[in-house]
């Protein structure tokens, strides 16, 4: 501490020491948590990424072999990266646009606001496994009600979760169904836009689009940015819906001797986090699983640093 010079009276020094002790005491649960559930496993992950370890016999040094395997030979690595990128671009963009649209819609409503708000919010509450299960049923190509309706209307009936070109769009639809969180955030931001600015724009003869472009958007753009960045981070972690949809649609969920095909159909729902599970808990190749984990870590931290830079408000404090 910079103030630790000899000129400082002993009383002040004592106070300082007391304050440090107090701070440490308040922070202690998290300091332990940080060391134990963040720093330790990270270091350990780096360590294991250079080891051959099957979780059973003692680990042996393996050099760069795991890294080489994951990047150059593991058949699902680039596919997982490509899928994750697809989801980051399409799913996040559509979710933000849709969330903003629904938020705008709510602010324009004059009747039944409470009903519509609840209706739009409700799907967000559905647990991911349950929501995915529901969609797997609704979109089941042979027997689901959605294709039944599409058939009645004479429209084409996609294979949804069983068709590699429709499985990610189906997951995107599921993500858009649970838009409640973004809707509420956008709604609050939209209501914070000063009314005077709209009135001034109206006096200048601005139409609805111009009002959105020159009044609404500049006011809510930090929130849009926030939604995009957190959306990207959430999508990096995209796991449950993808794996459950794949298992349900392929019909292979459990039972001895059955092997689940990763990312069914044709690896189209295969994402980075699933790689860690597949390598670590199905192949028991701890080293390669740690390599995959570190790739995931590097990408997540890159996105997080973007968040920290763009939203300095994250770090704001009162003094």
């Amino acid at each position: 501490m910079a103030v630790g010079s000899t000129a400082v009276p002993a009383a002040l020094k004592r106070k300082h020491r007391r304050e440090t002790a107090r701070t440490l005491a308040f922070l202690s649960p998290w300091l332990i948590g940080f060391g134990f559930f963040f720093a330790y496993p990270l270091i350990s992950t780096v360590y294991f990424s250079f080891m051959r370890y099957d979780g059973f016999t003692a680990p042996t040094f393996n050099g760069l072999k795991n890294w080489d395997y994951v990047f150059n030979h593991y058949p699902f690595f680039w596919q997982g990266l490509r899928n994750t990128l697809w989801l980051v671009v399409v799913m996040v963009a559509l979710r933000v646009a849709f969330g903003l649209g629904i938020g705008l819609l709510i602010t324009k409503l004059k009747t039944g606001v409470g009903f519509f708000r609840t209706a739009f919010y409700l799907p967000y509450l559905a647990p991911p496994v349950a929501a995915t299960m529901a969609f797997a049923f609704l979109l089941n190509p042979g027997t689901g009600p959605v294709n039944h309706l599409l058939g009645d209307l004479g429209l084409p009936q996609p294979g949804w979760f069983t068709d590699p070109s429709w499985s990610k769009p189906a997951l995107t639809m599921l993500a858009m169904w649970g838009i409640g969180d973004l809707m509420v955030i956008f709604m609050a931001a939209l209501l914070d836009v000063p009314k005077e600015q709209y009135e001034a724009a109206e006096l200048d003869g601005a139409g609805p689009w111009q009002k959105f472009r020159y009044v609404t958007y500049p006011n809510i753009s930090p929130i849009v940015m926030f939604a995009v960045v957190t959306g990207v981070i959430q999508t990096m972690q995209y796991y449950t819906q993808a794996i459950v949809a794949g298992k349900v649609a392929s019909g292979v969920i459990g039972g001895s001797g059955q092997q689940f095909e990763p990312g069914y159909p044709h690896g189209s729902t295969w994402t980075l986090p699933q790689m860690v599970y597949n390598l670590g808990f199905q192949r028991f190749d701890t080293g390669s699983a740690c390599v995959a984990a570190l790739v995931l870590f590097a990408i997540s931290m890159a996105v997080t640093s973007l968040l920290l830079r763009r939203r300095s408000g994250f770090l704001s404090s009162e003094d």
Binding site: P41, M236, V276, G280, T286, A293, V303, L307
Partner: peptide, 26 residues
């Protein structure tokens, strides 16, 4: 303090899969 806060945010953004292997072994 800012450092601690940044560490909190980093932890918040960390996918659970990143640390799961050593944690599971532990």
């Amino acid at each position: 303090r800012n450092l601690a806060l940044m560490a909190v945010i980093s932890m918040m953004m960390l996918p659970p899969q990143v640390t799961v292997i050593p944690m599971y072994l532990f």
